[in-house]
């Protein structure tokens, strides 16, 4: 009867040994490769720091002007541009300019990395069912595993700082762009692809001349979601040393500063809305200018 009421565990001592062994193994791994990894990520770190400084040190009217131009290019909608400018003015007026710029910097760099890594992975998945079968479960894990869990090995490897924060954001935010690139390419009309084949197109000619252009609306939907998800990681990333709007939120939580938390939280929301409108507008515009629906 005892067997049924008490779950048969592997024994405390063995369990402790197992965990210790895993920890030791990983610690050895990080001792051996941590430094190499850090060097590997150094260019990204330099870029991120440079970009953050650029945003923070440029005159604020110039920054707002550039953002307004980008908003116009993306959304082609004066309302979006006006709303964007107004939001940034309010954010600045409420003293959150520096933090917002830091967040903007990390979101931009993270999105860039996700695009540069994610689109090729999506392309590879679309080309081969084998690759798709391998990557899909990985993406599922990345999306469902609580972010705190993968923060542990990242911090063990790289310590506290911008780079581990960036990696954590990317792990969380990259799945949609991979998935939607893959999906977009797979959804391209079979007959159109066959036509490309029939006219003797090579694989790169098909990829860049037919598949990617026709998948662009989906790819942009992926970029949009990636941006949204990296914004959602801002607070968690600030726990491991990323500057930005997440830091005051954390401080507000531990000190019960309601106003501080609310303001910075709302600033994140506003950023999310702006990014969403701009990137969605961009996706819609390419679709509209080139063809209707389809």
């Amino acid at each position: 009867m005892e067997f049924l009421s008490e779950f048969p565990t592997m024994g405390n001592q063995e369990l402790r040994d197992l965990k210790k062994a895993i920890d030791r193994g990983f610690r050895e791994f990080s001792r051996a490769y941590g430094e190499a990894l850090e060097t590997f990520f150094e260019p990204i770190l330099y870029f991120l720091v440079w970009f953050e400084k650029l945003l923070q040190n440029s005159p604020w009217p110039l920054v707002i002007a550039v953002i307004a131009v980008l908003a116009w290019l993306g959304a082609r909608n004066w309302l979006v541009v006006g709303g964007t400018v107004a939001s940034f003015l309010v954010i600045g007026y409420l003293g959150m300019w520096q933090d917002t710029m830091a967040t903007l910097a990390i979101i931009s760099v993270a999105t860039l990395i996700c695009i540069v890594v994610g689109i090729p992975v999506g392309i590879a998945m679309a080309r081969s069912d084998r690759v798709q079968g391998l990557v899909t479960p990985l993406l599922d894990v990345m999306q469902t595993i609580p972010s705190f869990v993968y923060l542990i090995p990242v911090v063990m490897l790289l310590g506290i700082g911008k780079v581990p924060g960036l990696i954590a954001v990317c792990i969380y935010a990259i799945p949609p762009i991979v998935r939607l690139t893959n999906l977009g390419i797979r959804l391209v009309d079979r007959e159109v692809l066959e036509a490309a084949d029939a006219f003797g197109a090579s694989y790169p000619q098909k990829l860049f001349g037919v598949q990617i252009p026709l998948a662009l609306p989906n790819i942009f939907a992926g970029v949009n979601q990636t941006i949204m998800m990296s914004l959602a990681m801002v607070v968690i990333a600030s726990m491991i040393g990323v500057q930005g709007l997440g830091v005051p939120v954390l401080r507000a939580i531990s000190n019960q500063y309601l106003a501080l938390g609310l303001m910075n939280g709302l600033a994140i929301v506003v950023l999310a809305i702006i990014f969403d409108r701009i990137s969605q507008g961009f996706g819609k515009n390419i679709q509209k200018h080139r063809w209707d629906g389809h």
Partner: peptide
Amino acid sequence: MVFQGFALLPH
């Protein structure tokens, strides 16, 4: 080749 569904490039 010419196709039943035209198979033109919409972009």
